[in-house]
Each structure stands twice: as structure tokens, then as C-alpha cells.
């Protein structure tokens, strides 16, 4: 009762009961505090409404295009994606250029659609929102298992014999080793993988760790971390948040060569045996939409990249590749087996 009491007093002496004489006499010269204080509610809301319409209008240009494409109706756009294994800015730049290149070579509209996690890129490949995706070994297998007729078509030269690099913070007291068994020194350390579904940042490293007798579930200090991407793994190990981690060799080489890694803080301690990794996987229905020879033309657009042409060289450089070569589904049987053993592919 009483809390409203004071409000009643407040209301009563502001609007309806305010004597007319006072208002006529003083309000012209002196702003009466109360009515002004009462207004902002309504007035601010109206301002808000106006503001919204304006921002809406400003953003409408992207909004409309985004909406059109997102509603999935447009069959004429060839949408490419990639697992988010590196800094999003890097990916955006790389695949922006790739999309432009493909658009020119193929004569169709090509768009790059970023995603936040590995599994999402597989899901969107399955739903058909992404027509062709740059997958890792594991995600590629997962994607093909979910889309009948999907095909692994291209990989970089290095992906035939890909490696992971175990890295360590220099203060952690870990020694460089050259056989798998040497990984046993990681037991009891704070350790991070990259993404949960990464081949080079999780699947194969876990496979080698288990060969060395280190179980990620139980043998690290706390559970093993999942940083999300290779760049983040490097950053967190260099900062000492984790004592050790594992990244893909191509990212490691490219970052160290560019001088982006502080080698006084983080150092490579082990290079794994080779395995098949990254590759482009394409949906079977592109043939119906873009023509029977579409897959062949996509392959050509990559295999014919010429390091002497500055534009092509930039693409190769951003991919960390010397060349693109053709690949096929059978190359990933080993990965699939390891993934099944580790429970990363159901049944």
C-alpha cells in the first residue's frame, strides 16, 4: 500500500490536480520539472522507433541480399564453404579471392559462406546450403557419409602427406622428440587440441597420443582443451595458458615463416607421421544445376592454377600450396577407420 502511496502523491501533484493558475503564471518562464521528467518514457520510445527505421533502411541493402540468398531459393549461386580452422579474417580474405577466381573460371555466381564450427560446415553441406566445402580429412569423411554421391575431388600437394606438429611452451620443460613414443612426456601437462572435429588438430594427434599411451580423457592436467582453431592453439600455448598443443603443419610453417610466432615462447617438439588431410568435397546435385561437365571444370580451375601468374600465385600462397592435385574418396579410408576407432564417426 505504502509504496504506491508515494507514487499517488507524486502523480496527484503533477498532472490532474495542478492548479491552472500556477501553470499560466510560471510555466512560461520556468520549466516545471515534473512533466518533463514524466515524458521521456513515451518520447524516447518514439525516438527509438524512428532510429530503428533509419538503421533498418541503412542496413537494408545487405539485409535484402542476405535474406534472398539465405532463404535458399536461388539455385544459380554456387556456394562454397570451409571448415573454420584459422582466423576468420584470413578465411574471409582467402575464400573471397577463391570465390572471385571460380566465378571467372566457371561463369556462374560464386559465394563464400562463413560458419563458426566444423560440424556446422558438415550440416550445411548435407542440407545443400553449401555446394562445395574445403574439409579436413575427418569432416570430409563425415560429409560424404551423409550425402550420397558426394565426391572428394581436389587436394593440395601437401595433403597427400600431411603432418601435425606438437608444440610446447618453452617454459614447460618439454623436449623435442622424433618418435611417437616420445609423446608420453605430455602426460600430466595442460594440453589443448584445435577443433573437436579437426583431423590435424585432433583426430590424428589423438591417434598418435594413444599409441604413445597417453589418453586425452584422463592423462592431462584437467581435461584436454579444444581451442577451436590452429591459430588460437598457437596463441594460447605461446601465452602459457596451455603448456602444449597440436597444430597442422601448414599453418605452423606459414605462421613461423611470416614471423608471426614468438619462437622464444613456443617451439615445435614433434612432427607426426604423414596422413591424408584437407580436400574439396562437392555435392552431386551441382551437375543438374550447372551442367554435366561442371565438376571437371571445377577441377581444372584449381589444377590449372599457375604459380607464375600473380593472381593464381596469391591463391596458392594463401592456401599454403604449391599446386592442387586430384584426389578421390578412397584416399580417406584410413582416416575413416581411425575416426571409427576413436568414436568420432558413429557406428
Amino acid at each position: 500500500m505504502n509504496a504506491t502511496d508515494s507514487l499517488d502523491v507524486f502523480e496527484a501533484c503533477t498532472t490532474p490536480l495542478r492548479p491552472r493558475t500556477t501553470r499560466a503564471g510560471t510555466s512560461a518562464t520556468r520549466p516545471s520539472g515534473r512533466p518533463l521528467r514524466r515524458l521521456p518514457g513515451a518520447r524516447m520510445l518514439l525516438v527509438l522507433a524512428a532510429l530503428l527505421v533509419v538503421t533498418g533502411a541503412c542496413a537494408s541493402t545487405d539485409g535484402a541480399t542476405h535474406g534472398e540468398r539465405a532463404s535458399g531459393g536461388d539455385d544459380q549461386v554456387f556456394t562454397i564453404g570451409a571448415i573454420p580452422d584459422q582466423d576468420p579474417e584470413r578465411l574471409q580474405r582467402l575464400y573471397g579471392i577463391v570465390a572471385d577466381h571460380l566465378g571467372e573460371e566457371l561463369g556462374v555466381a560464386v559465394e563464400y559462406e562463413p560458419v563458426t564450427d566444423y560440424a556446422a560446415s558438415v550440416s550445411l553441406f548435407r542440407t545443400g546450403d553449401l555446394d562445395m566445402v574445403w574439409f579436413g580429412g575427418l569432416t570430409g569423411v563425415q560429409a560424404r557419409l551423409q550425402v550420397d554421391g558426394a565426391e572428394a575431388i581436389l587436394q593440395r600437394g601437401i595433403d597427400e602427406r600431411f603432418h601435425s606438429i606438437f608444440i610446447a611452451n618453452t617454459a614447460a620443460g618439454l623436449q623435442p622428440v622424433d618418435d611417437v613414443a616420445g609423446l608420453s612426456q605430455l602426460a600430466g601437462k595442460r594440453f589443448t587440441f584445435g577443433s573437436e572435429s579437426s583431423t590435424s588438430g585432433r583426430l590424428m594427434p589423438q591417434f598418435f597420443l594413444e599409441q604413445a599411451g597417453v589418453s586425452p580423457e584422463t592423462d592431462f592436467a584437467g581435461a584436454a582443451g579444444f581451442s577451436g582453431s590452429h591459430d588460437k592453439t598457437i596463441e594460447l600455448v605461446a601465452a602459457g595458458t596451455f603448456e602444449a598443443g597440436v597444430v597442422n603443419e601448414q599453418v605452423w610453417t606459414s605462421r613461423t615463416e611470416a614471423g608471426e610466432v614468438d619462437l622464444d615462447k613456443v617451439t615445435a617438439i614433434f612432427r607426426t607421421p604423414p596422413y591424408h588431410d584437407y580436400h574439396w568435397v562437392i555435392r552431386p546435385d551441382v551437375v543438374e544445376r550447372f551442367g554435366d561437365d561442371f565438376v571437371t571444370r571445377v577441377k581444372a580451375a584449381f589444377t590449372e592454377l599457375d604459380p607464375r601468374d600473380p593472381n593464381d600465385a596469391e591463391i596458392l600462397e594463401l592456401f599454403g600450396a604449391e599446386e592442387f592435385i586430384e584426389t578421390d574418396n578412397d584416399n580417406y579410408a584410413e582416416i575413416e577407420q581411425v575416426a571409427r576407432d576413436l568414436g568420432l564417426i558413429a557406428q
Binding site: G41, A42, R43, L45, L46, L48, A49, L52, V53, T55, G56, A59, S60, G63, A64, H66, G67, E68, A70, S71, G72, G73
Partner: peptide, 27 residues
């Protein structure tokens, strides 16, 4: 009045939202 203003904002918000997201229920 505040309620009326709010109703106006809600309508504006819904319209702008539909427009911005490009919602198409036929999916």
C-alpha cells in the same frame, strides 16, 4: 501514451525485422 508509443515501436520492430532477415515461411 507510453503504451501507444510502445505499440508503435513493436510494429516498427516487427516490420524492420522481417525486412532485415528476409524471412520466407515457404521454406
Amino acid at each position: 501514451r507510453r503504451l501507444h508509443a510502445s505499440a508503435a515501436v513493436v510494429v516498427a520492430l516487427v516490420v524492420v525485422s522481417l525486412w532485415h532477415l528476409g524471412v520466407d515461411v515457404s521454406t
